[in-house]
């Protein structure tokens, strides 16, 4: 068994990050307080980790063990879980997340976090003042938008480069046509096989007569 100190450190860091972020979105924090006392158990598969998120007042507690009542159990990858929580239209089944217990808590949490709007400028303004914080915030927002756009386009661009520029794989249309042809050949082979079997049976019957 690993040293509990490390796990406690990880949980503490995660909890501090969540609550520090919530500190700069009072509206979400207030909505969260309506779930006071509720707990959600997470069984993450990638990375392998089990924890429990407990709502205490307007804060989230991350616990390795929780012996109180758990409203919802979720199982799946961390990435799928983050997407599920962030996107109110996402469904657990669509992301490969298993749900047991009440799904109402999950739905409420999805609704609350869909309105998450953290004012990242506020902590910066506390240190360096409003005007420099706003200028830096603007630059960071532009950078984040640019990064987000590029990250969204990255898979498509990478696929194009691999197939069109470097020609390491066939283009998608060519590949799909190949798959269709292959399926057709497979069906034709099966039909031929069935026909040969039928002929063999007819031939055997005649020989027997």
């Amino acid at each position: 068994m690993s040293d509990p100190t490390f796990r406690a450190g990880f949980d503490a860091a995660l909890e501090t990050t969540i609550n520090t972020a919530l500190q700069y979105d009072p509206a979400t924090r207030q909505r969260l307080s309506t779930l006071d006392g509720k707990a959600m158990a997470l069984d993450l598969t990638a990375p392998k980790l089990q924890c429990c998120l407990c709502i205490e007042g307007d804060q989230v507690r991350v616990r390795q063990q929780w012996e109180g009542e758990v409203s919802t159990h979720l199982g799946g990858s961390a990435l799928a879980f983050v997407r599920l929580i962030k996107d109110p239209d996402a469904t657990p089944a669509g992301l490969g997340v298993s749900v047991s217990g009440s799904s109402a808590l999950l739905a409420e949490l999805q609704w609350i976090l869909s309105g998450l709007d953290i004012d990242w400028e506020a902590p910066l303004a506390e240190v360096i003042g409003d005007i420099p914080a706003h200028s830096i915030g603007g630059v960071l927002r532009d950078a984040a938008r640019w990064l987000g756009d590029n990250l969204n386009r990255a898979p498509v661009m990478a696929a194009e480069a691999i197939s069109e520029e470097w020609q390491l794989t066939p283009p998608q249309a060519q590949f799909e046509a190949f798959v269709d042809d292959l399926a057709e050949v497979s069906l034709a082979t099966e039909r031929l096989e069935a026909r040969v079997r039928l002929l063999q049976e007819q031939f055997s019957r005649r020989e027997a007569e």
Binding site: T5, A8, A12, Q64, Q65, W66, G68
Partner: peptide, 16 residues
């Protein structure tokens, strides 16, 4: 010591 105490709280199973 904060992490040691944190683990203690977890194992206490304390509830409302």
């Amino acid at each position: 010591h904060r992490l040691w105490k944190r683990f203690t709280i977890e194992l206490s199973g304390a509830r409302r």
